[in-house]
Computed example of a mutant assay.
Amino acid sequence: MEFRHLGSSGLKISEIAYGNWLTHGSQVEEDAALACVRQALEEGITTFDTADAYANTAAETVLGKALQGERREGLEIFTKVYWPTNRRGHNDSGLSRKHIKESIDGSLRRLGTDYVDLYQAHRYDVETPLEETMEAFADVVRSGKALYIGVSEWNADQIRAGHALARELHIPLVSNQPQYNMLWRVIEAEVVPVSEELGLGQVVWSPILQGVLTGKYLPGQPLPAGSRATDTAGGDSAIARWLRDDILARVQDLAPIAADAGLSMAQLAVAWVLRNPNVATAIIGASRPEQVTENAEAAGVRLDDDVMKAIDDALGDAVERDPRKTVSPSRRPS
């Protein structure tokens, strides 16, 4: 495993992170989830990403159990706040001082730790003044419950405004967590340049696009049984837009490129993400330990310019690049 700084901070994190969105407490039984975390540790992964909303808090509980007994100083644990969990009252979502204060305490209890390394705003809250949100995050940092602050799926203007307030409050806003992969490149035009300017690193989710970039979904063929695309607990809706035959045919054109590079298609996808110098880590998920091993082997792989061009040629106009696609809800979810 190799390690990178998270933005311009002094914190180093593993180049591959393990995340449990759509798996722990939902798609994967607990024994399998624990086995995947143990395999991640075996592969040298030290960075683990979750959120209170994943599986309605169950994912945090499973991750806390899986990491129990590990040396806390050797881990980097990330979680998030914004979406509602359990109770769905009028203050049970968003980034108000009240919700942040209550959410961090719940996350720490479920994770079985005194602090998280990175506490992230899971979306931008249009109903809360940004000053209130950043002051609440400052309280979390100063109380020792989080070491660093990050955001997720904020656009460039929101990142710039949040960073300015973080500087005034003397708290370390160091990261953004966007979706980023070969087919979804909406952060490249605006978010990445602003992040580079301000010293934020990208903590990338969905580098293999929920399995689409592994090549297992074939144009004109039935969906594989047990795959994320057949998971009615949430996986199917997350992946549906990418299952068009024209997109799947282009993905199949990546197979010879991966083979020539001596990589699986999943490894090619993860290595592609890591080639961006603003990316600090690529979050992988898994339902089986062998998937963790396969994806972790993308650490340290460096793709040359010819491979990058071949990927662009294969995917063509299937790639989404519009920066306006980085959006948060127009109102708090309930």
Rank of each mutant, 00 (worst) to 15 (best):
F137S: 08
K12R: 13
Y18L: 02
G235S: 09
E43R: 15
Q179W: 06
L315E: 02
R97C: 01
E127F: 12
A32N: 13
A269C: 08
D125H: 06
P193G: 06
K65W: 08
I257Q: 03
S206N: 06
V37W: 03
W21L: 12
L315I: 03
P219T: 08
L198H: 02
R244Y: 11
W242N: 02
Y115M: 13
I208R: 00
I159W: 13
R250A: 13
Q202T: 06
S143W: 03
W83R: 15
V319K: 03
E197Y: 09
T113A: 12
A271E: 09
G25A: 05
R142P: 00
M308I: 14
E73C: 06
H163K: 14
G150C: 05
T50A: 09
R332M: 09
G25W: 01
A59C: 05
E294S: 07
S107Y: 04
L213W: 02
L213T: 02
R4W: 07
A55D: 07
A238C: 13
R321K: 12
L223T: 10
D52E: 15
S26G: 10
N56W: 03
V301E: 04
E135T: 14
I100A: 02
K145N: 13
T46Q: 08
L118D: 03
Y82A: 11
D236L: 15
L111N: 01
Y217F: 11
T113R: 07
A189T: 13
W21Q: 12
D92I: 05
